[in-house]
């Protein structure tokens, strides 16, 4: 007992005797392997996006999100955007984090997400915009702030606008405050954002 003598065997290739992995197997470890085996295959994106809402194990989900992040395609981004409307917060957050890793595709999704009927999806659109370091993002946020009617989305917009330092952000914040004159929280959020803007 105690420290073993090194065998050198840890670095030798081992022949695969893996059980055939299936996405609907009862064991999450097997489902995780099935997800990993899909990576890079044609049609994998559709399969992953379809299985994610039904998958409850975080390890399997994370493998699926990583496979989508690695795919880095417009189709993967589209599929992830659909998941932003899911009821499960962990699923929505995972989709948002993964979308943020592919800004080149996520950028094109901001407009439809910003017009989505569900305010929660619009909030995710604003959060996603905050993850995309692109000069046009501030203008997109300003345009969204002109007409957004949901106070929770506006609160999120105020925070995002406060970090842009863009010309026009102050006017957009003032417009939000004017739209909700009786909402003390939004008033506070706008004041804080204006303060950040003034501090540069």
């Amino acid at each position: 007992m105690g420290l073993l003598k090194a065998s050198g065997g840890n670095f030798s290739p081992t022949p695969g005797v893996e059980e055939r992995a299936s996405l609907d197997h009862a064991d999450p470890a097997v489902r995780r392997r099935a997800v990993q085996a899909l990576a890079g295959e044609a049609g994998a994106v559709d399969t992953l996006v379809a299985m994610l809402p039904h998958e409850t194990d975080n390890g399997v989900r994370q493998a699926a999100f990583l496979a989508l992040a690695s795919a880095k395609t417009a189709a993967a981004a589209q599929g992830l955007a659909v998941l932003l409307g899911a009821a499960d917060p962990a699923l929505r957050n995972g989709a948002l984090e993964t979308l943020a890793t592919m800004p080149e595709h996520a950028r094109d999704l901001l407009d439809p997400l910003g017009r989505h009927a569900d305010p929660d999806v619009r909030i995710f659109a604003v959060l996603l915009a905050g993850e995309i370091h692109d000069g046009d993002i501030a203008q997109w946020l300003i345009a969204l702030a002109q007409a957004e009617a949901d106070p929770n989305v506006c609160s999120c917009l105020a925070e995002a606008l406060g970090g842009t330092g863009a010309p026009g952000a102050g006017e957009a914040l003032a417009a939000i405050a004017a739209r909700f004159p009786g909402d003390p929280f939004l008033g506070f959020a706008v004041d804080t954002a204006l303060q950040r803007l003034s501090e540069g």
Binding site: L3, L4, K5, A6, S7, G8, G9, N10, F11, S12, P13, T14
Partner: peptide, 22 residues
């Protein structure tokens, strides 16, 4: 005795094949 107790070898973290050995 201590040198012989450590199993040293090459692994490239970005190689899924090599990482799968562990």
């Amino acid at each position: 005795s201590l040198r012989e107790s450590i199993d040293f070898g090459v692994i490239n973290v970005s190689s899924p094949t090599q990482m799968a050995r562990m």
